[in-house]
Design a protein around this nucleic acid. Structure first.
Length: 407
DNA sequence: CGCGGACCTTAATA
DNA sequence: ATATTAAGGTCCG
C-alpha cells in the first residue's frame, strides 16, 4: 500500500505530458496529480516531483497486498511476483534509455526537432500491452483523444475485470480478446457509441481469439524488447524501411479489420517495441508538409508511397528510435498542448498558486521573450482560438484573459 | 497504384 | 440557431 520511488528527473520523464499525449487512453488523473490505471491485475498509481517518480500498486481484495500464492507455489517464485511492480513500472514507462541523450541525438541531426523539443521534454515512448494498443488505436480513427479514452473506459467497464476502486470509482482492466469475440459485442458496442469501430473491434477480437494461434500478437514483437525478461535475440540490421521483423509485423497487422498503415504503425511502435515505426496521421502529415518539404510534386497527397517516404525520411534523420522522436513532435502539435507554445502555460501554473501578483506573471512571460518572437506567427495563429477557448470552456479569471491578450 | 466517398459521434467553429 | 468541420483513418469501388 505504501508508495515507493525511483529517481527520475523531469527531463527524463514527464508524466503529465507522456500520459496525455495520445499514446495510452486509460490513465486517469485524480485531484492531487496522481495518475492511476488498472494494469496487470492491480491499480497502478504514479506521481512525480522534480527528482523522483513515486509509484504504488493496489491489488484487489487482499488488504492491498499482492494475491496470496497457492501453498504449492514455492516462496522463491512468489517473491518475484510480489516485487514485480518496479519491473512493471520500468518496463511500461520504458525507463531504460537516457531520454536526454536521445533528445541530444535527434537535435543534432535535425534543426526542427532541436527547435520544437525544448518545450516538450520528458516524452517517453510507453511500452504498452500490444492488444490494448491495438484496440485503442482501432478506436482512434477519425476520433479525438477524449472520446477514445471514453470508449476505452466503456469497453473495460462492460467487458473487463474490476480490479478495485479509487475515489469511489471502479477500475477495470482490459478485457481479453476472447471476451470480445462474442457475436453480441458488435451491436452492444455500437449502442455504446463506438460507431463503425464496433465491427472492427469485434472482428479483430475474433481473429485474435479464434483464428490465430495463442500468442500470435506477441510473436510479432521486437525480440530485443520482450514482454518480460531480457533480450532474447537480435532484431537484425536497420534498413531505410525498417528492420525485417518490423516490416513483417506491420504487414501481418494490416490483415486485421480496422487496421490500416497508421494504426499498424501505432501498434508496432507502442505495443510491439519497434522503435522505427513512424505512424503518419493528419498531424504528422501536416508536420511533414510544414517542416520537411513534403506535400509537393511526387508527394502532393498522402498516398501509400508518400506515407512510406515520410517514414523512410524520418528513419534516415532520427535513426532506430525514429518513432519515439516522432512522438515528441506529434505531442508538440497536439491541440491540448498548444498553449505551451504561447507561454500561457506559465500563466496557468502561476494561476494555480492563486496568490501571485501580476508582476510575477509578467516576469514569467518575459523570461520566454526569445521563444515568443521565434514562433510569433504561430502564436498569432493560435491566440484567437485560445482566447475563445477560455471564454467558452471554463470560467477564467479576468486576469488571465488580460494576460493572454497582452502576449 | 491512386482517388473519392462513406462511415459513427461529438464538440467546436462558422 | 443550424450547418459544417475536425478529431491520431480505414474500407471499398
Amino acid at each position: 500500500m505504501s508508495w515507493r520511488k525511483l529517481p527520475v528527473s523531469l527531463t527524463e520523464l514527464c508524466l503529465d505530458t507522456t500520459l496525455r499525449c495520445g499514446q495510452s487512453f486509460r490513465w486517469r488523473k485524480s485531484e492531487d496529480n496522481i495518475w492511476s490505471c488498472a494494469l496487470h491485475g492491480r491499480i497502478l498509481s504514479l506521481r512525480q516531483d522534480s527528482t523522483q517518480l513515486h509509484y504504488q500498486a493496489v491489488f484487489p481484495d487482499t488488504c492491498n497486498a499482492p494475491p496470496t500464492p497457492p501453498s504449492s507455489v514455492p516462496s522463491s517464485e512468489y517473491q518475484v511476483e510480489e516485487d514485480d511492480t518496479e519491473d512493471l513500472v520500468r518496463h511500461y514507462l520504458n525507463l531504460g534509455p537516457s531520454l536526454v541523450e536521445l533528445y541530444e541525438q535527434w537535435s543534432s541531426a535535425d534543426l526542427n526537432f532541436k527547435k520544437k523539443a525544448p518545450k516538450f521534454t520528458g516524452v517517453r515512448n510507453l511500452k504498452q500491452d500490444a492488444w490494448e494498443a491495438l484496440i485503442g488505436f482501432i478506436c482512434s480513427s477519425n476520433n479525438n483523444i477524449i472520446r477514445i479514452s471514453q470508449m476505452m473506459d466503456k469497453l473495460c467497464k462492460q467487458y473487463g475485470p474490476c480490479i478495485g476502486h479509487m475515489d469511489s470509482r471502479p477500475f477495470h482492466d482490459m478485457p481479453k480478446p476472447s471476451d470480445l469475440a462474442h457475436p453480441s459485442v458488435e451491436a452492444h458496442l455500437r449502442q455504446l457509441g463506438f460507431g463503425y469501430r464496433a465491427k472492427y473491434i469485434y472482428q479483430t477480437a475474433v481473429m485474435i481469439a479464434n483464428e490465430h494461434e495463442p500468442g500470435w500478437l506477441d510473436s510479432l514483437r521486437n525480440p530485443e524488447s520482450p514482454v518480460r525478461g531480457c533480450k532474447i535475440a537480435s532484431a537484425g540490421p536497420m534498413r531505410p524501411e525498417g528492420r525485417e521483423g518490423y516490416r513483417t509485423a506491420h504487414a501481418e497487422l494490416l490483415a486485421l479489420q480496422g487496421v490500416g498503415p497508421k494504426v499498424a504503425d501505432c501498434v508496432c511502435l507502442m505495443g510491439l517495441g519497434w522503435g522505427e515505426a513512424v505512424p503518419v496521421d493528419t498531424h504528422v502529415w501536416q508536420i511533414a508538409q510544414r517542416d520537411y518539404k513534403f506535400g509537393k510534386g511526387k508527394h502532393r497527397s498522402l498516398t501509400q508511397a508518400t506515407y512510406d517516404a515520410i517514414g523512410n525520411h524520418f528513419r534516415g534523420l532520427w535513426g532506430q528510435e525514429a518513432g519515439w522522436a516522432h512522438s515528441v513532435l506529434f505531442t508538440a502539435d497536439l491541440r491540448v498542448f498548444s498553449e505551451r507554445l504561447t507561454a500561457a502555460v506559465e500563466v496557468l501554473e502561476v494561476k494555480k498558486e492563486e496568490e501571485k501578483d501580476d508582476s510575477h506573471i509578467e516576469a514569467h512571460i518575459d523570461a520566454h521573450e526569445d521563444v515568443k518572437s521565434e514562433i510569433k506567427l504561430e502564436v498569432e495563429d493560435k491566440k484567437r482560438r485560445l482566447a475563445a477557448e477560455e471564454v467558452t470552456q471554463t470560467p477564467v479569471s479576468k486576469r488571465r484573459r488580460k494576460v493572454l491578450s497582452s502576449i
